[in-house]
Simulated scan of single mutants.
Amino acid sequence: MAFEMFKTGPEYSSEFKLFKGLVDDEVTVDDAVQWVIGATMDRLEGYGPGGTIDKADAVTFMAILELVMRIDQAQYGPLVAFLKELKMYNAVDSTTGLVLKARNGSWVWSHLPSLTTCARKILAEFERDDDYLCDPNVDPEQQIRWAKMNIFLAKSTQAADVKYTSSSQVFISDGMDESHIGLCGLRQIFEEGIPTEQLTSGVGLLGVCYWFICAGDRLWENVLNGRQYNKYDGRPGDMFWDRNWRGFERERWDVWQKGLRDAQDACLPGQEDVKDLISRALSKMESLTNDSSCQ
Rank of each mutant, 00 (worst) to 15 (best):
P113Q: 06
T40I: 03
E125N: 00
V27I: 11
A159R: 04
D30E: 09
G207D: 11
L22C: 07
I181V: 09
I64A: 02
Q169R: 10
I53T: 02
S114N: 13
F19V: 10
G38K: 07
T157E: 02
I194S: 04
N230D: 15
A63F: 07
T200V: 12
D57K: 02
G21Y: 02
A119L: 08
C118R: 05
M285G: 01
A2H: 12
P236N: 03
E191G: 05
S279A: 13
S106V: 14
G259F: 04
R252T: 01
P78M: 02
D93A: 08
G193R: 08
W241Y: 15
L22A: 05
D31F: 12
I71N: 01
W109S: 00
D217L: 14
L224P: 12
M5P: 09
P10M: 08
K148C: 05
V33L: 07
E249D: 13
V138Y: 08
I189S: 01
T95L: 12
I64R: 01
Q158A: 11
W35S: 08
L65R: 03
Q142I: 11
S156L: 01
V59Q: 12
F19K: 04
T40R: 04
M88V: 13
L199V: 06
M69D: 10
Q158G: 03
E15W: 02
V255E: 06
M285N: 00
L186H: 05
V274W: 08
K17Q: 15
L22M: 10
Y12A: 13
M1L: 15
D30G: 11
